[in-house]
Amino acid sequence: MALANRYQKILLHTLIIAGVVIMLYPILWMLSSSLKPSELIFTDNSLWPKKVTMDHYIKGWAGISKTTFTTYYLNSITLVAIAIIGNVVSCSLAAYAFARLEFKAKKLMFGLMLMTMMIPLHVLVIPQYIMFNKLDWMNTILPIVVPKFFATEGFFVFLTVQFIRSLPRELDQAATVDGCGPFRIYTKVILPLIVPAIVTTTIFTFIWTWNDFFSQLLYLTGQEKLTVTLALRIFLDAMGESALGSLFAMSFLSIVPVFLMFMFFQRFIVEGIATSGIK
């Protein structure tokens, strides 16, 4: 029995690792290409570079004339950090109301929230741009981060609603009996129990804001305001001279902070405080 179990485990690990290799092949190819001299990127097809060079990393990091990737990283991280705070606070507040409180027009408003997600962004861009321009918010991060404080990303509201709805109602009812009002229930009962949802919101806000190319393109114009995502696109232009090696090198590096962040936060999902919290 024990032996069979062991074989089963080895088999499982082998399968998982094989899956990892297949999944990561394109990324490995990118890593290997970023280490090859330019002329070998598309001629030398092997994953193991024949010649290794760090040129692309050095040249790539140097960025565009005066600003380097240090600036772009700082900009991206600032943007993302503020966005996370905004989303976590505003979305969980709204979600609590939708999931647990009773009020008129609740269904209608919930529907409205879903509806705001169903309209393709591209037709909203111009009116939004005009609005932010009138507010004199051009070339600042305000058009990107301020809406986050107003729960405009329905995805996270909906996500958190679903999490709260799966929590046993007895919990807040018991708390009510103990004399807790809605605010105390929200902070003392609900918030600790939806840590996985909050962490998920954090992770996704990080990734999506980091990668959100379109709004960064429209609102951040000055060179000193460029983010990593914007800078990466500048490496590649079909009409001019592109720098594929640097593009691969910097793209690879750009995954690193997101990956580290994910490694760090995913534990909180996994260790899920919820498991022990409910009695």
Binding site: I16, G19, V20, M23, L24, Y25, P26, I27, W29, M30, I207, W208, W210, N211, F213, T229, L232, R233, F235, L236, L244, L247, F248, S251, F252, S254, I255, V258, F259, F262, M263, Q266, R267, V270
Partner: peptide, 26 residues
């Protein structure tokens, strides 16, 4: 934990330009 993170890597790159080139290569 490591496996989870590794499986998540492809989703981290989103729709970046590098992905376009990679996917055409693959």
């Amino acid at each position: 934990g490591t496996y989870r993170s590794l499986y998540y890597i492809p989703s981290l790159i989103g729709g970046s330009v590098a992905i376009a080139i990679l996917w055409r290569q693959v």
